[in-house]
Design a protein around this nucleic acid. Structure first.
Lengths: 346, 346
DNA sequence: TTGAAAGCGCTAACAT
DNA sequence: ATGTTAGCGCTTTCAA
């Protein structure tokens, strides 16, 4: 592998000049710059990222750390962030935390805070306070931070407004006995859960019930883990117990797809017997039978906002920001839209 | 951030001793090693990966580069590799090539060959010869390399055997007029495509047709892009054109799920009118309506084989391998199994 | 068993 | 406009 020294030698200039030239520093004359670029190209030169990063503290790489790579929503989100970062000239590396605190810590300490100029992190088991001890002072953007003390910039999914829209939609298509699947009603009693994704989606749903004068009690809220298998089994139990709703708001699309399958297993027709709406907008929902009405989180918007926040912090870290710029943490919320499909069409 | 120097100072030893101690070198006395470890812990010390990597050429991080992060199959595969790597004490970073040659090159040059000790790469548009020029001499394992000249170790998906099993299964459930969806029959004419994933799945299907004495011609092979949208539209056109099969082998599960939806749109009942089988074994296939019979690639086995090959090359690079070990490139094939579900149950 | 010292490849302050 | 030089944090000979 050719080094900067090789390039400098081939171009007949000093290492410093070669370095400046390759990074487009205006101090280098166009003629020299060209000479250097040609030399670099002919030697198939690439800057050694470790060396650059060690010396300058910058690598041009950002990290994304999410729960699971093999679930539709987080993987679509990572892909969107990765695309948006590329538009800003940033390489993205993705890691899965596997929902384990140990893995989160390991990723934060070993990779993210070391190789990456900044990180977009979906915290699961690690508190912002703990992150502070691990992140090495590098820019960090949180996804759906649940702490109320904003230590880091954060992008939120549109939980409240989205959940509210979901319930309203079910109401508009005629549902009056609406169930909510995927949340334990008791989290309302736990303050620390109130700002979690479940908590905020539940809050949005409750607000809609209230506005629409629909009476609900804990029996309208059915707990299940957020995967297809549990959602399916939960619907089996629900139907077998004789409890029925005419509309069902599932806290995620994955839950909704599992529920659809569980209802089909028991001969409950969707949307005729029960209208079903999900949340997230994963690709699969468009092709399920019936296709899934959902609250789609605008992942391109979410990615844009996350990268915008991160870019700003990167600029701050590089000193590329005018004196007196407001540096206080910011919290943005991604857009959403209701996508009406067959599962609520009636 | 605490450095090695800080740790050494706090422990009252030299930097070298501290370095040895932290990496468990037996030359350091247990007492000293303990002292150093305590100092490191209290300072919340982490080795600087850039520095380690620059000096020793090793980082403990491996790279995975795949087509798309937001498609079920590649993302499940990345997750499996990531899990398996963790079992070997390796951190994994994942990047998406977005099926673009430019991105593949950029990833290989900028990140993978720099930060990573080795790479597991699913090549799309870049030839093994081109990889050679880019990969910086670091260990590289290919996934489904299509070149016949094995420059790199490779793990294959079980295309031929899997496709053969798929056709046989359709035959066993009574299908005699079997279509294959997702492959252009003309690729048989193009030698360079013969060893591609499509080419090998097609070859397996043809072998089964031959063994079973089923006559097929080009009309049995229907081309479509490998996504749900195109598969669905293709099925619409097929049904509308009056062409029908009693069994359909879809080259991927994504294609199969799109086909299922397209058939439902046209009132074709699965499995009664047409039995459908996919290939890959993505999670969604278990919950679709009807659930999808498929040839499941054993991703844990694939991951195990890929990491095994990579670990071996890593050991070779570190000189941890006895004199005279066979260093020739190896090519392994992942296991598969037939999962019978509703889409062929009749 | 431990320490001193060199240097991986690069960037940036300083000098020319 | 270009060159000289120091040093980022670590590992690894070599010497003690």
């Amino acid at each position: 592998m050719a080094t900067m020294t090789d390039v400098a030698k081939a171009a007949g200039v000093s290492r410093a000049t070669a370095s400046y030239a390759l990074r487009g520093d205006p101090r280098i004359s166009p003629a020299t710059a060209n000479k250097v670029r040609r030399a670099a190209a002919s030697l198939n030169y690439t800057t050694n990222l470790s060396a650059r990063s060690l010396r300058s503290g910058r690598s041009g790489v950002i990290g994304v750390a999410i729960f699971e790579l093999d679930k539709p929503y987080p993987s679509e989100m990572s892909a969107a962030i990765s695309r948006e970062a590329a538009r800003h000239g940033l390489e993205t590396i993705v890691q899965q935390t596997s929902n384990s605190k140990e893995r989160e810590i390991s990723i934060l300490r070993k990779v993210t805070s070391q190789l990456c100029d900044g990180t977009i992190f979906s915290p699961g088991n690690v508190s912002p306070e703990e992150i502070t001890a691990l992140y090495g002072g590098k820019p960090m953007i949180l996804l759906d931070d649940i702490s109320d003390d904003p230590l880091f910039d954060c992008v939120f999914t549109p939980c409240e407004a989205g959940a509210e829209a979901a319930i309203r939609h079910l109401y508009e298509v005629g549902c009056r006995n609406i169930g909510v699947l995927g949340v334990d009603y008791r989290i309302l009693l736990d303050d620390s859960q109130a700002t979690s994704v479940s908590g905020r989606r539940l809050a949005g749903a409750l607000k809609a019930f209230d506005d629409l004068n629909i009476n609900v009690d804990e029996r309208n809220f059915v707990h299940t883990l957020w995967d297809m298998e549990h959602a399916r089994a939960t619907m089996h139990r629900l139907v077998d117990s004789g409890r029925m709703f005419d509309g069902l708001f599932c806290l995620t699309d994955t839950v909704a797809l599992g529920a659809l399958r569980g209802l089909a297993d028991r001969g409950v027709r969707v949307p005729d017997d029960m209208a079903v709406i999900g949340f997230d907008g994963i690709n699969e929902g468009e092709y399920s039978i019936p296709s899934l009405t959902t609250i789609e989180t605008d992942l391109d918007d979410l990615a844009k906002k996350a990268i915008e926040l991160l870019s700003f912090r990167l600029d701050v870290a590089n000193g590329d920001v005018p004196e007196g710029t407001d540096l206080s943490t910011r919290r943005l919320t991604a857009d959403f839209r209701l996508i009406e499909r067959e599962s609520t069409r009636r």
